[in-house]
């Protein structure tokens, strides 16, 4: 048993390494995502003109950031299964276990999303001003958001990549699934923005962790069935 787990761990590490190397070689994809984030933030800045913050524009600031992050993550993660060509998939099919693949993809996407979310937040705060009072808590909600988005979207992109018009399907399938998570995140980050007592966001934090746990276990159990086809 321990031996199998060790093999799984090795597979995961190997696959993450492979994804990182691939990303490093094709830097245009990552640069494209960076530019996507940057231009979206700038468009938001221009169209809202929110440079000066009054007290009541906090919710808009917060919701806008999460919407940008949502679209960024859908775009970034959608390609995680579609970019793989057929030959490479067949090769993986013969050498590694499906659990290894899904876990590796989840970890890799989480890393990618963490980086993107952090850059997005810094740039957004720089351009649109930063009303956040409790920054560590806000960063924690960003962290949870990145993990949550990447776990559920990885599975959805695996499902969507099997279908014909996968990019539309990706949006249709993912938005309803992500909404509960998004609502929790917006509430939690709003609490952090207003500098409320940290105990106030404990409910949201636990619920988010629970949702993440559910999503990861469900994708772990279900992915082998998807992989076979």
């Amino acid at each position: 048993m321990r031996k199998i787990n060790a093999v799984l761990l090795k597979e995961i590490l190997y696959l993450i390494q492979k994804d990182l190397v691939l990303e490093w070689r094709q830097k245009y994809a990552f640069n494209g995502m960076l530019l996507y984030v940057g231009s979206t933030v700038f468009v938001c800045y221009l169209s809202f003109g929110l440079r000066q913050f009054s007290d009541d524009s906090g919710p808009i600031w917060n919701a806008l950031l999460w919407i940008i992050l949502l679209f960024t993550s859908v775009n970034a993660i959608a390609k995680s299964f579609m970019q793989e060509n057929r030959g490479r998939l067949l090769y993986f099919y013969s050498i590694v276990s499906p659990q290894g693949i899904i876990l590796a993809k989840i970890v890799y996407n989480t890393l990618l999303m963490l980086l993107l979310a952090f850059i997005c937040f810094v740039f957004y705060a720089f351009v649109l001003g930063n009303p956040v009072q409790d920054i560590p808590m806000f960063l924690l909600s960003l962290l949870l958001g990145a993990i949550g988005f990447s776990t559920s979207l990885t599975m959805i992109s695996a499902i969507a990549s099997k279908a014909a018009n996968s990019s539309t399907l990706m949006a249709i399938l993912s938005f309803p699934v992500i909404v509960p998570m998004l609502l929790m995140l917006i509430k939690m980050s709003k609490n952090a923005m207003d500098g409320l007592d940290r105990g106030a966001s404990l409910d949201e934090l636990l619920t988010l962790l629970a949702i993440n746990m559910i999503v990861i276990t469900v994708s772990y159990i279900l992915f082998p069935y998807l992989w076979r086809s």
């Binding site: 199998i4 746990m213 559910i214 159990i221």
Partner: peptide
């Protein structure tokens, strides 16, 4: 591993419920 995963699932769901 699978059993462990299911346990995780249940614990997660319970954590969500109890705190609610």
């Amino acid at each position: 591993f699978r059993i462990l995963a299911i346990c995780c699932f249940i614990v997660g769901a319970l954590a969500g419920l109890t705190q609610v």
